[in-house]
């Protein structure tokens, strides 16, 4: 194969926009809530597709998830990915990021053995359902490949990768030898839409392979719940910010700003709140 083989790892997550509180019981309602591709992973798919479009090669999308995630893989193929792999096994359930990254890394090894050399693995910045941002780094560790995150742009030449990495206050440029792992900056790109012919291909050619642990042959002590050392020890909810519930109907923006400033500074309670927010407890 000419060009580069890029693997994109995606997560099939609950659509958190659809999860809400029951006003009577105060508990989360998850019933009937469908899953979606983790929104930031769409940016990872987009980056991989752009690299393939520029340099040739192929994009393989991979996910570790229960079988309904095929719907997400079809969506990815609809966007233009060449093929997809569903890694699924009952023994993989309940995995934390360590066990997940282990399975993904071994699946990438299997891609290398059975399909061919992998040049780059791409992940989204983090997931909406757990926000750990671990997976890219952990997969890179398992594979022993260099890892760069917050990547905004990437280009490939002569077996090496050049990226632009955007942090809060600086923009950095890196070069790394392939193979490598990158995580794409949140909202870095504009993910392309599903196209008719690609989606048709997803439904007819069905370029989606399923691998279970029979195919991967991983030690069951290293996967799923058993392979997950992470323990959520305690969850504390942040205290609600008190609101004064004042409403002002302004005549124009200038007047609105003036009113706001006047109120913010004249009210003692508000002044304390601002001071605490800016300089911490006890600064008022």
């Amino acid at each position: 194969m000419a060009g580069y083989r890029v693997v994109v790892g995606i997560k099939w997550v609950p659509n958190t926009q659809a999860v809400r509180f029951d006003p009577k019981t105060g508990t989360l309602i998850r019933q009937g809530v469908p899953a979606i591709i983790n929104p930031q992973d769409l940016h990872a798919i987009e980056m991989a597709l752009r690299l393939r479009d520029a340099y040739g090669g192929e994009v393989i999308v991979i996910t570790m998830a229960p079988p309904p995630a095929v719907q997400g893989l079809e969506h990815a193929i609809g966007m233009g990915a060449d093929r997809a792999i569903l890694v699924t096994d009952r023994s993989f359930a309940g995995a934390d990021t360590l066990a997940t990254s282990y399975v993904l890394a071994r699946a990438i090894n299997k891609v290398e053995r059975e399909i061919g050399r992998v040049d780059l693995a791409v992940f989204g910045q983090e997931t909406i359902d757990s926000s750990t941002a671990h997976i890219g780094a952990q997969v890179a560790s398992w594979l022993g490949w260099p890892y760069i995150y917050y990547v905004k742009q990437a280009s490939l030449s002569n077996g090496s990768l050049r990226v632009v990495r955007q942090l809060e206050d600086v923009i950095e440029e890196y070069e790394a030898k392939l193979p490598a792992v990158i995580s794409v900056l949140a909202k870095a790109l504009r993910p392309r839409h599903v196209s008719l012919l690609n989606k048709l291909r997803a439904r007819t050619e069905r370029p989606i392979i399923t691998w279970t642990n029979k195919d991967l042959g991983l030690d069951t002590r290293c996967v799923g719940l058993k392979g997950s050392p992470t323990i959520v020890a305690k969850v504390t909810y942040l205290p609600e910010v008190p609101r004064l519930k004042k409403v002002h109907k302004a005549e124009n923006p200038r007047e609105a700003a003036r009113w706001l400033l006047k109120n913010l500074l004249s009210d003692e309670k508000t002044r304390d709140l601002i001071a605490r927010a800016l300089w911490g407890e006890g600064s008022a």
Binding site: I115, L197, R201, T204, R206, I208, I209, T210
Partner: peptide, 10 residues
């Protein structure tokens, strides 16, 4: 390789 199915209809 894998379960490659029908050809994409034109």
């Amino acid at each position: 390789m894998g379960d490659v199915g029908r050809k994409v209809p034109e």
